[in-house]
Simulated assay, not measured.
Amino acid sequence: MKAKRVWGLVLAAAMCMAVAGCGQEEAETATTEPQYQVIGTEAEGAYDILLKNSIGQDVTGISVKTSDEEAYPANMLASDAVLKNGETAEWFYMPEEAGETEGVGEKDIALNVVYQVQITLADGTVYELSSLGMDDIDQNVELCLEDDVVFAKYTSKASGDTVSTKEQEVASKAQKDAESQEEVASEPAPVEEVQQEAPAQPAQQSAPAASEPQQAPVEQIPEQTTEGCLTEGGGPAFN
Rank of each mutant, 00 (worst) to 15 (best):
Y93C: 09
A210I: 02
A210N: 11
G160A: 10
E212Q: 12
V104H: 13
V117L: 05
C144P: 08
L145R: 15
Y115N: 13
Y115D: 09
P190G: 01
V114S: 07
V149I: 10
V141K: 02
V218I: 02
E187V: 03
S156A: 11
G124K: 03
Q220W: 05
L111Y: 05
S164G: 01
T125H: 11
K176F: 02
E128I: 07
E223V: 11
M134H: 11
Q224H: 09
I137L: 11
L129T: 03
P213L: 13
V149E: 09
S180H: 04
V184H: 01
P208S: 09
I137P: 07
A207I: 12
E212R: 12
V218R: 10
L129Y: 00
A178F: 02
N112D: 14
P188K: 03
D148R: 08
G103N: 10
E102A: 11
E212K: 04
T165E: 02
Q181T: 04
V191N: 04
Q175C: 08
A122W: 01
G99R: 06
V149T: 01
D161F: 02
S159G: 05
E102V: 11
D135A: 12
P202Y: 14
S164R: 03
S164H: 02
A207W: 14
E192M: 03
A178L: 04
A110V: 06
A189Q: 08
T125M: 14
P222N: 12
N140P: 00
D148N: 15
E167G: 00
E179H: 08
Q201V: 14
P190R: 02
D135F: 08
D147W: 05
G103F: 07
M94N: 06
E102M: 11
V126R: 06
D123N: 15
A122K: 15
A152G: 11
V149K: 03
G124H: 02
V104D: 06
L111T: 06
F151Y: 14
V104P: 04
Q204M: 08
L129E: 05
D123F: 12
P217E: 09
K173I: 00
Y115E: 09
A209V: 09
A185Q: 03
L129K: 06
E183Y: 10
I137H: 06
E102P: 00
G99A: 07
G99Q: 09
L145K: 15
D108V: 09
Y154Q: 10
V117Y: 07
A185Y: 01
S172N: 10
P217Y: 08
D147I: 11
G124C: 03
V104K: 13
D147L: 10
E182G: 09
D123G: 10
V218H: 05
K157I: 06
A189T: 06
Q118E: 13
D123E: 12
A98C: 07
G99F: 10
E219R: 05
Q139K: 12
G160D: 04
Q118G: 12
